[in-house]
């Protein structure tokens, strides 16, 4: 059998079915808890500043993995940023077409290390490019639960031009 041939007979051999019957419940952690509570209650993005390398990390994290310092200075950062890179997903996890395609970007924030992966949205047919200025669009306060989906998406920043 060549490398690229698929065996479709696996299920005809003698086999035994089973699973690993567990699910997971993850805490957001020391810094993650602060970040998501702030996003939910105050609608802002929180970072942490490293006193050693003077970088500010977004989202907030508990330690600087380079300097290995504990980060205890929490600072709000502007909720508009720049599209660092983007992609458009035309199919979902099961291979079904997505129309319109989902536009996903890595968004960075001025003066900050790190950034957020999130959806890009706006008017129908809106197109995006690397380098675009975008701003955060939040869900209504009542619908926010303290998770990354409290952010609806990022849209073109007001007054931004290409």
């Amino acid at each position: 059998m060549g490398l690229i041939q698929k065996s479709s007979s696996n299920q005809e051999l003698r086999h035994y079915r089973g699973n690993i019957p567990v699910g997971n419940l993850y805490t957001a952690g020391i810094a993650g808890d602060r970040f998501f509570v702030d996003l939910r209650d105050k609608g802002r993005l929180l970072g942490t500043r490293c006193p050693s390398c003077e970088r500010t990390f977004v989202p907030a994290r508990h330690f600087c993995e380079e300097c290995f310092t504990r980060l205890e200075e929490y600072v709000p950062v502007p909720s508009s940023g720049t599209v660092h890179s983007l992609t458009a997903a035309h199919v979902d996890l099961d291979g079904k077409p997505l129309d319109p395609p989902h536009v996903l970007a890595f968004i960075t924030f001025e003066g900050c290390a790190g950034g957020l992966v999130h959806r890009l949205g706006g008017a129908p047919g809106q197109s995006f490019r690397i380098g675009d200025r975008v701003e955060m669009v939040l869900k209504d306060r009542k619908k926010r639960t303290g998770g990354i989906n409290d952010i609806e998406h990022f849209r073109p920043a007001k007054g931004s031009r290409r």
């Binding site: 003698r14 086999h15 699973n19 699910g23 805490t27 998501f36």
Partner: peptide
């Protein structure tokens, strides 16, 4: 703040 996950780890062992 917590999130959940389901690995859906299903196997057919030969």
């Amino acid at each position: 703040i917590t999130t959940t996950g389901e690995p859906h780890a299903e196997y057919a062992w030969d």
